[in-house]
């Protein structure tokens, strides 16, 4: 794939700006969503290779987004990396159970961002090549 497309779902404007900048610098093309509903709609529109998803989103939280995307055959294959503050460990567990591939806690090391997103992409691609779902990764 030429420039993989990341869908970034984050409602905090400063964090959205920073992560967009970092991902672009790492060679990704970035689309953004600021609510859970926007994220699901954007994923359904197609051409999204990986999703970086904040757990605390307005209108539909990260867990709800994961569940909605897993249910839909159009979006089921897209790997999801969730982001959250450590205080929400329970939410992250639920996200992982709902099918997210890995998680990043805030504050995060910007260098790790690119690594995690790339790892999720690679696992998904190789998983599809093997004909099975990717293994869940834990940092």
């Amino acid at each position: 794939m030429s420039m993989p497309v990341v869908l970034l779902a984050e409602d905090e404007p400063d964090i959205l700006r920073l992560v967009t900048y970092i991902l672009r610098r790492e060679g990704f093309s970035v689309r953004t969503a600021t609510t859970g509903k926007e994220a699901v709609d954007a994923a359904r529109q197609g051409q999204v290779d990986v999703i970086l998803l904040d757990i605390m989103l307005p209108e539909l939280n990260g867990y709800g987004v994961c569940a909605a995307l897993r249910e839909d055959p159009l979006t089921r294959h897209i790997p999801i990396v969730v982001m959250s503050a450590r205080a929400q460990a329970k939410e992250v567990e639920r996200g992982l159970e709902a099918g997210a591939v890995s998680y990043i806690t805030k504050p995060f090391e910007p260098a790790h961002l690119g690594e995690q997103v790339r790892a999720a992409l690679t696992a998904a691609v190789s998983g599809r090549a093997r004909g099975g779902a990717g293994d869940a990764l834990h940092p």
């Binding site: 905090e12 400063d14 964090i15 920073l18 992560v19 900048y21 970092i22 610098r25 503050a85 450590r86 205080a87 929400q88 805030k106 504050p107 995060f108 090391e109 910007p110 260098a111």
Partner: peptide, 18 residues
């Protein structure tokens, strides 16, 4: 409070790291 602090700290750390 802990959660509220993490959000701006994430922005500060991210901005300075970049």
């Amino acid at each position: 409070v802990s959660h509220e602090l993490r959000t701006p700290l994430t922005s500060i750390k991210g901005a300075l790291s970049v």
